[in-house]
Amino acid sequence: MAAVRPYLRGVRLLPFKIHAVYGGHGHSLPVAFFFPVLAMGNPVAVFYLTPALSQREREQRRSMSIDNPLFEGKLIRLGPVDHEKDPEIVSRWTHNAGYMRMMYTDPARPLSIWQVKKKLEELEKSIEEDKNLFHFRIRTRSDDRLVGFAELSWISWTNASGYVRLGIGASEDQRQGYGRETLNLLLRYAFDELNLYRLTALIPEYNLPALALFKRFSFVEEVRRRLALERDARRWDLLQFGLLAAEWKERQK
């Protein structure tokens, strides 16, 4: 009996009540069958049998989550550009030189609402035509307020690789966990939906919050372009970080 034989035989042999237990996340496959052992009507022990799963099947089951929300975190939600409402907020961000210098190597420069509108239209066109850019706006779930952007860009489909970047626009929205939640969603999207093999992040040496965030997600420093940038009258390195899908999956366990 204890030698776990094909469990259908076990079921036949045991006239006990059978409780099928199903896994979470809406799985339809049974995870285990429980067989309470009753003595004089009281439960005294429990047998349970689980279908033999290979290591691979176990891993697949753990991560098989078609119904996992790709665009929703606890605090934020990833969505498309809102051409009506976004330009005004983005224009405000561009007036914050600190933000602009962290996010862009182009000279920091405030943009009018009209200029931002044009840029967002260009972005939309690029998404439609180039087929290698996935751009999201980050909004709070509580009040649907725009707080930043996140994107996977320059995707090379034959090499299954791309670049990742994200920004939280207003200083009062930084350090609230929005970036961390966004990167978590974005990586899952890159590796589980776009099936990319690896991602690259380009980060100037002086962008300490970005360095901390990407390192936290196991990105590895791969290239150091020495003194490639000039700001505040001194030269800075431009760092290139990489994360492989395999490393990301390892981290999910």
Binding site: S156, T158, N159, A160, S161, Y197, R198, T200, V220, E221, E222, V223, R224, R225, R226, Q240, G242, L244
Partner: peptide, 10 residues
């Protein structure tokens, strides 16, 4: 040499 992007191309 300044570094290498691991397995970037296939």
């Amino acid at each position: 040499y300044e570094g290498r992007a691991r397995g970037l191309i296939m």
